[in-house]
Each structure stands twice: as structure tokens, then as C-alpha cells.
Simulated assay, not measured.
Amino acid sequence: MSYPATPDDIQRFKDAFRLHPAGVALVAGNTAEGLVGLTLSSIASVSADPPVLSFSVTRSTGSAGGILSAGTFVVHFLTDQQAQLAMNFARTGSPRFTEEQGWQTLPTGEPYLPSASMALRCTIRETLPVGPSVLILANVLDTYQGEPATPLVYRDRTFFSGGGLEALPVE
């Protein structure tokens, strides 16, 4: 690829990641303006000791800006039964934090979704602006284990059940 990237380079890069499946998470926090949340497929483990994860947001306004300004937030790993919830938090103006979605509040004030397979309470360790995006490194403060469930996966702008995953023999 050339730098700066050409429109064709940018499209090929987007196509490469569009076809690469990724787990789906919902990040939710509480700010002075109210509850904020967004759907992500960019969650990655960075370190186990200390426990640190990373994700990126494409701008620093709206829900993403709210997460950046929240003191703490919770990363929820979604199950294949939560595709509609993921879509609601991916679209502006869709229902969020409703009673029907099953939200609760942690004693520390963050919104918590007990039906997630795992939830990680975090605080921002550092941020790095990259083009129009922001890479977030977050310290994991607490973990909340939900019921074991099939993960929700995102590929080519579509949600899938991760239940079709079959281990392959390797030497």
C-alpha cells in the first residue's frame, strides 16, 4: 500500500477486514449526560498481567465520545441470542437500555447486562488517535461471568452464530 493510501488501497483494506470474522461486544458506560453504549467487533486482548484489552472507535463524538469521557465502562461479550441487541446499539436512534433488554446497574454505577456471556468492567489506560479513529487501551478492573453460550460473530456486515465452529486437528 502506498502512503497516503489511495482510495483503492482503502477499499482493499476494508474488504480484508470485512471478510475476517470477529466476536461482537457491547461497550456501555454512564456519563454525566446519561447512559451510552455501542456495538464493537474490534475487542482484543493485549495483556493478561496486567489485564488490558483494546478496541477502537471511529470518532470521538456520540456514544463513542461518551465512552471516552466515562470514568469506567463495561465490555459485554454478546451471545448469538443477542443479535438484535447488537444491532440496536449499532444504529443511531434505536432502543437502548430498555427494561426488555435486561439491563441492570452495577454497585459502581455502570450499566450491566447479565445475559452477556462475560462482562469486563474497565477504565481507560491510554488512547491513541489514528486517522479519524481512536485506539483505546483499557485496564480490566473486574470480571463478571455469565452463563456459557454461543458467541455472536460479525462478518461481511452480517451477524452469525459462532456455534458452527468446529475444532480442526493440527499437528
Rank of each mutant, 00 (worst) to 15 (best):
A28M: 05
V57S: 02
G109P: 06
G66K: 00
G34M: 06
G29N: 09
V134N: 04
N139A: 11
F73A: 02
V140R: 06
Q145S: 06
Y3F: 13
D142C: 10
S63Y: 07
L85P: 03
A25M: 05
T92W: 11
A83P: 13
A44R: 12
S54M: 10
G23Y: 01
S56V: 14
S63W: 09
T6H: 08
P151M: 03
I43H: 08
L53W: 00
D156P: 11
P51E: 04
Y112T: 08
R157D: 08
P114I: 02
G23A: 05
S45A: 10
G23M: 07
A83K: 15
P7I: 05
L113I: 01
G146P: 04
A86K: 00
P169K: 14
L165P: 14
P7D: 12
P21W: 01
G109S: 07
G162C: 13
V130W: 09
T79Q: 04
V46I: 11
F160N: 05
K14T: 03
G164Q: 11
T143Q: 10
A90V: 03
A70F: 00
V130L: 15
M1E: 13
L137V: 12
P50L: 11
P51K: 10
T98R: 14
L19H: 10
A64T: 05
D15I: 08
D8M: 09
G65A: 09
A28Q: 01
Q84H: 15
P132K: 04
T6M: 03
G29L: 01
S45F: 02
V57P: 02
Q101E: 07
T108A: 02
R12N: 15
A44S: 15
Y112N: 03
L19F: 14
I43R: 06
P21R: 05
P50T: 11
Y112G: 02
T158R: 12
A119Y: 02
L128H: 11
D142H: 07
L35I: 07
Y144R: 08
P51A: 07
P107V: 01
S60N: 09
D80W: 10
A167R: 13
P50D: 14
M118S: 07
Q104S: 09
F160Q: 15
V24M: 11
Y144T: 05
R91C: 12
T31W: 06
C122E: 01
Q81Y: 14
F73Q: 00
R96C: 08
Q84N: 13
A22P: 15
I124V: 13
P107L: 04
E171N: 13
L165A: 15
E99P: 04
P4W: 00
S47M: 09
L152Q: 01
I124H: 02
G146W: 02
L35H: 10
F89R: 01
A48W: 11
D15K: 08
R155C: 11
G131E: 04
S117C: 13
A167I: 15
R121W: 09
G163Y: 03
V153K: 01
E100T: 09
S60K: 14
T105D: 06
A48S: 11
G109C: 10
Q104A: 14
V153F: 02
T105E: 15
A64L: 02
S63P: 10
V74C: 08
F13A: 12
Y112F: 05
T79I: 06
V74N: 11
T61C: 13
E126M: 03
R18M: 10
P169L: 07
E171D: 15
S69Q: 06
T39L: 08
